[in-house]
Design a protein around this nucleic acid. Structure first.
Lengths: 357, 357
DNA sequence: ATATCGTTCGGAAACGTTTGCGTTAAAAAT
DNA sequence: ATTTTTAACGCAAACGTTTCCGAACGATAT
């Protein structure tokens, strides 16, 4: 078992000092041609690689970014991670992930864990429990320690930081207007409780679209589901609720659902009730996962481009991290170096498939 | 912006030495009652948390494990990560993920990146390109550096380490036998090229089941798809291939597919060709993802319990890491401390749904 | 011949910890 | 009264780097 080779070891065996080795490997002109070459050759021979931990300690930066998400077994979040990973890798950063599992305390613990030197900054999406409690102290404390945060998807005004969101509102308006343009007269909405910002915004988009088309949003047509229902376990509860929606609204001819599961379940229930898709009923969902693509009929969706979100979030974070770098010797500094926080909106896009005409 | 508080700072402000602070916080009895309490109180007041990087450097262990997978936007892999995360968290470890994207060079680079001090050990699944090239030097070198590896799912005999796999062979036999028991006489197989071990094993399972039931495995009934086809992009190619399979075998009445996508696509094509499921054709897939649960009809599958795989892999790795700990002062040592490598098989389970009788 | 300078390198500090060992003073033993 | 013990703490090394500062030495300038 070959132990890791260190500067000290090279120095000893080549009978020079550690600093000389360090400089030689950095190609410093302070070191003579011959010694420099000799050291470099030997180092390459031993396959020397500097110890990241030591570098981190010295430089006070770890070149790794912490990603904190509520759940990883979820198509949207994994595409975001992929995006983050891609640009992180490109720019020389590592990614360490923490799962909050939608729990407030796990979110806090994970943050504290990572904030003690392990990472340079966070990319995160807030857990549902945190949104419910509206307790954001851990975010603000982290930021106050000088660790920047970029939030995506589930964001909150109470924390000042860079944010990356999708145009939930606009996307929903577009979707519902498409249903209207396609001839739908009675459009149902299947959504979540309002405390999840994205659910609320998508609901508002639905309302706005109807309003702008001089259509009445019958309360009967709106199904608000609480979280217990979206759990995979009680799929039957979900189906039941949706069935009630259809039965209460026999004239329903369009459905807008705020996520994929609701949408495909709606199609399933509709088919059971003898409704033909898209002839009797057209369906559009929000998100893009695997379900929508492979359902039959395949589902028309509002795509949110998770990967692009991840890429943008990582870019924002790293930009800020590397801006802070040349902050110490801010001599030319216009006195406010702090770059203003940015909220970046990733455009959604409707992908038409078989569930609409 | 409050800078991170350090031992030195506490020491200065309390007019004691750094070592005294360190010991006081560690509750050492070497430090007097009063100073100890005074220091502890002040530390708590300042919300002192030790710097992980400094600890890592000192202890030569980072308490983080590296996870290297081919792809993250994949239900199976994300469930595995979830499993890893759960036990890692429980046992005080962090998880840093790297994506090889099925590429050999990215796999190597990622490993080298992380192996330089960032992690204590790896949990990984081999990329397809690596399997093709059969170049495993990076794994062996890493192990040789004293960094243990646990492989899961896609493993390889050429590397000696702990492994966690599913009983691909046995699971496939079970699945195909179930089709036979359900009355299928002509069972098709949709599988991948042989160099991916899991594909090969599942194919062998199919063959064995037929053999044991004195059935002939007609070459016509076996569809081996290369990887280009499994890409989401050319879904139509996949559908076309499967359609040919059905047309060449009009008497086909059962299908065993080695992954979810193949299985649901088979159902889709079958429905298009006018076959009723499960009456005319029964289908079983390997894996468990979201598709199978929500397809219509829902898909009977061989579930591989990704989360359990992740949990076991993480446990094996951490066990080995913490075994190595008390290895230095191995005084009572029966001369071979090295624990033998373990290959752990996670049992599969057939989950019956609507695609079988 | 002396002063100045540039080249080439080593020593040491620093990053934040932990820990073996030494030191001091007071308490206990002789 | 002198020695030994013990309690309570500080010093310094170590982990692996980078980098500031200074040292040595030969070469050039005066």
């Amino acid at each position: 078992m070959k132990k890791k080779v260190t500067l000290k070891q090279i120095a000893r065996e080549l009978d020079v000092s550690v600093s000389t080795v360090s400089r030689a490997l950095a190609d410093s002109k302070e070191i003579g041609e011959n010694t420099r070459r000799r050291i470099q050759a030997y180092a390459k021979f031993l396959n020397y690689k500097p110890n990241n931990i030591a570098l981190s300690l010295k430089n006070k930066k770890t070149k790794t970014i912490g990603v904190l998400i509520p759940e990883i077994v979820h198509h949207f979040f994994s595409t975001v991670i992929r995006g983050i990973e891609i640009v992180a890798n490109e720019r020389g950063y590592n990614v360490i992930v923490g799962l909050s599992n939608e729990s407030f305390s796990k979110e806090v613990l994970n943050m504290e864990m990572l904030a003690n030197g392990s990472i340079d900054g966070f990319v995160l999406s807030i857990s549902k429990e945190t949104l419910l409690k509206q307790d954001y102290h851990h975010f603000n404390e982290t930021i106050n320690q000088g660790i920047p945060i970029v939030m995506f998807d589930r964001v909150v005004n109470e924390v000042e930081c860079d944010k990356v969101i999708v145009d939930d509102f606009k996307g929903s308006v577009k979707a519902v207007k498409k249903l209207i343009a396609n001839g739908c007269k009675h459009i149902g909405l299947i959504t979540t409780m309002d405390y999840v910002s994205v659910g609320r915004l998508r609901t508002q988009g639905y309302l706005r679209a109807l309003e702008e088309s001089q259509m009445y949003a019958a309360p009967n047509l709106i199904l608000k589901l609480d979280d217990m229902v979206s759990l995979e376990e009680n799929l039957d509860v979900l189906e039941n609720e949706i069935e009630q929606l259809f039965k209460k609204n026999p004239k329903i001819d369009g459905v807008f659902a705020v996520n994929e599961l609701y949408a495909v379940t709606a199609m399933k229930v509709a088919k059971k009730l003898g409704l033909a898709i898209p002839d009797d009923l057209q369906v559009i969902g929000f998100t893009d996962g695997v379900l929508s693509k492979h359902a039959s009929p395949s589902l028309t969706i509002v795509s949110q481009h998770g990967q692009k979100i991840g890429e943008k979030a990582a870019d924002l974070l790293i930009d800020r991290l590397e801006m802070d770098e040349d902050d110490g010797d801010a001599n030319i500094s216009d006195n406010t170096r702090e770059q203003a926080f940015e909220t970046c909106v990733i455009e959604t896009e409707i992908i038409e498939r078989e569930s609409t005409k």
